[in-house]
Every structure is written in C-alpha cells, then in structure tokens.
C-alpha cells in the first residue's frame, strides 16, 4: 500500500554550532496520524534536530517541509501560520511562571482566535480535563509537580487543536508510573484527536509504548528509520546495544 503524503519531510538537513557539525544528511518523513520517535543517545543531536525542524535554530543546509511547503528561509509571518497548526511540549514544560495554569493554556486562544471569553474558558477547561488537571486551573506553575507541569504544557500545546504535536523528552525526570500515565495520555489524544505526534526521547519504556515509527540518530546522522520491530531486527550493533542495555552513549 502506498504511504500517505508526509506531514513533515526533511532532506539533507545539516545543523551546525559554529564550525562544528551536530547532525548532517538527515532525510526522514513524518507520516500523518503516526507517533514517530526520534531516539538516540545523549548528545547524539536529537534535540538539535527537533529545534531545526521547529526552526528554533535555522538549519545550516537542507530542506524542511511541512505539508509539502518549504519552511527553511520562510519569513516569520508565514511560518507563524504553520506554527498555529503545531503544538510543542518542551522538556521542562516551559510554563510562564507569573500567570496561572488557566492563563497559560488560554494564551494561544486569546492571541490567535477571536473567540468569546466564555468559549475560551470552556476550551481551557476541556483541554485541562484532557490532561486530567482541571482541578488545578487556578494554581500557579510554581505550585505544581514536574509531572503536572508537563501535563499543563501538553494542555497548552493542545489549545489550538494542533495537527502535529512535538514532545521533547516528555518523560524525562518523571517516575515510571507518571511516565506511563503521560504516555497513555499521548496515545489517548492520538486516538481521540487523530494527531501526528513526534516524540524525542531515549526512554525505552516510552518507546515501546508509543512508537509507530522510530528514527535512530547516531554519529551525527540518521542511522535507521522504520517500525520498532524493524529496528530491533535490523542487526545494527548500535541499535541492538541501545535496546538490549536500555542505555546508550
């Protein structure tokens, strides 16, 4: 069966810090409705790759396309139209500390829609309920645990009903139960909202729970792309070591 059109495609992507190449020759396609995992050892360039896909850092060379549209070199205003269709959960949550949980989730709705305050309030409550945190809507980020902060960040990322959700190390620093609950939440959201989800992680348990497709970064380049089963059966030593030991790098 022919694969559907990718929602994101990277071609010959290279990222550098100064003269040092961090990743190069990255070619990959993110397919709609799938959970794609970008994995690799510490310092392999996973987060750099994510930042380049999101244009938080401008790629040194190569191409990044969203829904077939090239975004490298695209002007900021046009790229904002694309940003409205994606949501990002940062590693530490990156909530705005000076405002409440409710206001954190309401920000994108207030800034990018012309909805009435009552509709916005209703939507914020729904999004917080999706991450099971409706009860904490009037609390401030400083009053939340690490896991709660990540769930609020997820609710904020979902505020505008994104078509693609990016999560940078969503389970980092969480206990196994909270991490599993967050993974279940992502699976639930994918099922309900039919989103494409891209997760950067090296948490093996999460990879096993979530992955439809994995992209293994090693030695600055993409070592493997395919399903989790294919990755395990690939016979590539670095990947075998990763899955056998649970650690890498």
């Amino acid at each position: 069966m022919k694969n559907p059109e990718p929602v994101i495609s990277l071609r010959n992507l290279e990222a550098r810090y100064g003269e040092v190449s961090i990743i190069k020759d990255i070619n990959l396609d993110i397919l709609p409705g799938e959970i794609s995992i970008i994995l690799g050892g510490s310092g392999s360039g996973k987060t750099t790759l994510l930042k380049n896909i999101l244009r938080l850092e401008e790629p040194w060379s190569g191409s990044v396309k969203y829904w077939g549209e090239e975004v490298v070199g695209m002007d900021e205003l046009r790229f904002e139209d694309i940003l409205r269709k994606i949501g990002v959960v940062f590693q530490g949550g990156a909530l705005l500390n000076s405002i409440s949980v409710f206001e954190n989730v309401a920000i994108p709705l207030e800034q990018h829609t012309h909805l009435s305050p009552s509709a916005i309030e209703r939507m914020v409550r729904v999004k917080l309920n999706l991450v099971r945190l409706a009860y904490a809507m009037y609390q401030f980020p400083a009053e939340l645990s690490g896991g709660m902060k990540k769930r609020v960040a997820l609710a904020r990322a979902l505020a505008l009903d994104p078509q693609i959700l990016f999560c940078d190390e969503p389970t980092a620093g969480l206990d196994p139960l909270t991490a599993a609950a967050l993974d279940d939440l992502l699976l639930d959201l994918r099922a309900k909202l039919k989103m494409t989800i891209v997760v950067v992680t090296h948490d093996l348990a999460s990879i096993h729970r979530l992955a439809d497709r994995v992209f293994f970064i090693d030695g600055q380049s993409l070592l493997f792309s395919g399903t989790l089963g294919e990755a395990k059966a690939s016979g590539i030593p670095a990947i075998e070591t990763f899955f056998r030991s649970g650690r890498y790098g």
Binding site: L115, A119, M123, V126, K127, D161
Partner: peptide, 11 residues
C-alpha cells in the same frame, strides 16, 4: 468541527 466549534455548539 474543532474544540472551538464544540465550545460554540455547547453554548
């Protein structure tokens, strides 16, 4: 319909 549409519908 998206979540804004649902909020509108419910109201």
């Amino acid at each position: 319909m998206d979540s804004a549409g649902v909020a509108f519908w419910e109201e």
